[in-house]
Design a protein around this nucleic acid. Structure first.
Lengths: 151, 151
DNA sequence: TGAGTACTCTACTAAATCAATAGAATAAGT
DNA sequence: ACTTATTCTATTGATTTAGTAGAGTACTCA
């Protein structure tokens, strides 16, 4: 399961991508719209900023805006930054690897072999999907479920 | 990430499948080989038994043995039983579903849409892989890494 | 230039979950 | 009967996640 932290991070980035134009948005506004506790969100936005995904402006008229184009920010980057390992076992994690305590020999472990496959299939989707793609999906779904509101 | 509980459950089942023949195996033996704490493993085996994956015999010469053929026990069954949701978000979980608190409308949520795809790709592998398949993979890997020991 | 706005940073606390332990009860075999 | 071994309930400890508090810093605009 993704942590709330990761969930809020994705929501915030999608939100800022929707806004586009590079216009700064207040933490307070993002918090309200994504239903994240304001102070908690601050920490998350800060982390995203330090990693270069966001930029910020202080003072009146300030706020957060995307630090790079929405199509360059892949979901896998967000997950990794906010600490969620993608793999289901430590011994198959690329970025949070830890040797398996239970099995005798990693290379010949059948369990590990299966979960490498699971990891790869998830990774493939998450590395190919950007924040911009999420927006595209959103639009596609809107047309599908509320055809009247669009043409 | 899978919980230790799930990890121990899979290991135990694979272990018992390797033994086959329906000969009962002591908790103590399984615990030793899978490096699981004995008392903790007891709880897990009990749960597997109550779900029908294992059978047990009390008294001298007793122990645990497979309750059904190794090829019928799919990994997805074990994960679900021992409590690990497969999905990365509650709102896309088939067995542990909870409505999303953050988004306005589930059907048109782009984030959800992506994670449905991730879930399905994992599910496909886990429903198609049985404990028997894990053993097969193990053997294949053994031949690959230790070709001398086999013919 | 100064008043107010809004991000930045460090430290702490609360809650939930996971992992493990303890010990008594029950059942089966010899 | 006595030993072996599973069954079941309850409790504890450790770790992680989620959220809170508050002081500090930088910037904008009038």
């Amino acid at each position: 399961m993704l942590s709330k932290k990761t969930r809020y991070a994705i929501s915030a980035l999608v939100m800022l991508a929707r806004q586009e134009e590079g216009k700064p948005m207040l933490i307070a506004t993002i918090a309200e719209e994504t239903k994240a506790p304001r102070k908690f969100l601050e920490l998350i936005l800060l982390e995203l900023r330090n990693a270069g995904f966001l930029k910020s402006k202080k003072g009146a008229g300030g706020g957060y805006y995307l630090g790079r184009s929405a199509s360059e920010i892949k979901l896998v980057h967000i997950l990794r930054l906010t600490g969620g390992p993608i793999a289901m076992l430590p011994c198959v994690s690329l970025n949070f690897y830890e040797p398996c305590e239970e099995c005798i020999e990693e290379e010949t472990c059948g369990i590990r072999d299966v979960f490498i496959e699971v990891r790869d299939s998830a990774l493939k989707i998450l590395t190919n999907t950007s924040v911009a793609d999420v927006l595209k999906r959103e639009k596609k779904l809107m047309k599908l479920f509320h055809p009247g509101k669009f043409k």
